[in-house]
Amino acid sequence: MIEFHLDARSGVAPYLQLIHQVRQALRLGLLRVDDQLPTVKDVAAGLAINPNTVLKAYRELEYEGLVAARPGVGTFVTGTLSDASLAAHGPLRQDLQRWLAKARRAGLDDESIEALFLNTFRAGTAQDVA
């Protein structure tokens, strides 16, 4: 079972935050197939949020095929995000570490590295969209 939390200042809609947290947990292997998600009532009561928000998040996850509701029992994990990509994490991290070292040698400080990364990342997504 995972526990949800909300960041009120993030500006991200609460139901999206819930979805992100489930996906993150799946990615990190914290949630596995057949694990149960907290009930709508527990999440609503725990976070003091509208139960419809929780329902909306769960429905979205269901639509993505990651979870399934079993009537009268609860919502259970049916899919996973980790299997295919997890193997690729190691080599990619090594590449990234090499790149970071190169950036430091070139005289970039942490802030500049972060800005460069985000800029490139955004430009990439923008090109994908277009």
Partner: peptide, 14 residues
């Protein structure tokens, strides 16, 4: 305030 809203949401969900 938080506890009150938690109670309220629990009732609404239930």
């Amino acid at each position: 305030r938080r506890e009150f809203l938690q109670s309220l949401m629990e009732f609404v969900a239930g």
